[in-house]
Amino acid sequence: MTLRNLVHCALAVALTFAGLAGLYLELGAQFVGFAQILVYVGAVAILIVFAILLTRSHEPLARSIVSPGWVASGLVAAAVFGILAWAVRSSGVSAPPIPPRPAVAVSQIGDALMSKFVIPFEVIGLLLTAALVGAVTIALRDQRSRK
C-alpha cells in the first residue's frame, strides 16, 4: 500500500491473493482455493502487471503518491476497521463449537452447479462473455479510429 513502485505493488497483491487461497484451503474449501489461485494469481495479477506496463508514463514520478486528503481517508479506513473488529468481537459468533470439517468433493460442486445453481451459472457465463468482449472493444477503440 505504501510502495512507490507500481510493479512491486502488483507483486505484493499477487502474494496477498495467494495467501487468501491458503486461507480458503485451510477452511476446507478446496475448489474455491484452487479457483482463487487460477483466477487471481494466474489471471488478474498478470492483467494488472500488463496494465501497469502499458500505462507506464515517461513523465517524472509525481510529487506524491497519495492524494491530497489522505489523512482523512486513512482515518476513515481505520475507523471502518475499528467498527468491523468491534462488531466481530462483540457478536456471539465465537460461541458455537467447531463443527467437523465438511467434506465437499468437487463432484458435489459440479452437481450443484448443474442442478440447483444452473441459472446463475449460465448468467455468469453470459456476463463474462459480454464483459470480455466489451473490454476488448473499449481497449481497441482508439486504434481503430486512428486508422
Binding site: 474455491v32 479457483a35 482463487q36 483466477v39 487471481y40 489471471a43 488478474v44 492483467l47 494488472i48 500488463f50 496494465a51 502499458l54 500505462t55 455468469i124 456476463l127 463474462l128 464483459a131 470480455l132 466489451g134 473490454a135 476488448v136 473499449i138 481497449a139 477503440r141 482508439d142
Partner: peptide, 17 residues
C-alpha cells in the same frame, strides 16, 4: 470470483482507454 474477474478486465480496459 467470476464477477470480480469480469470487473477487473473491464476496469483495466477502461484505464488503458
Amino acid at each position: 470470483i467470476g464477477v470480480a474477474a469480469a470487473e477487473a478486465a473491464v476496469g483495466l480496459a477502461l484505464i488503458i482507454a
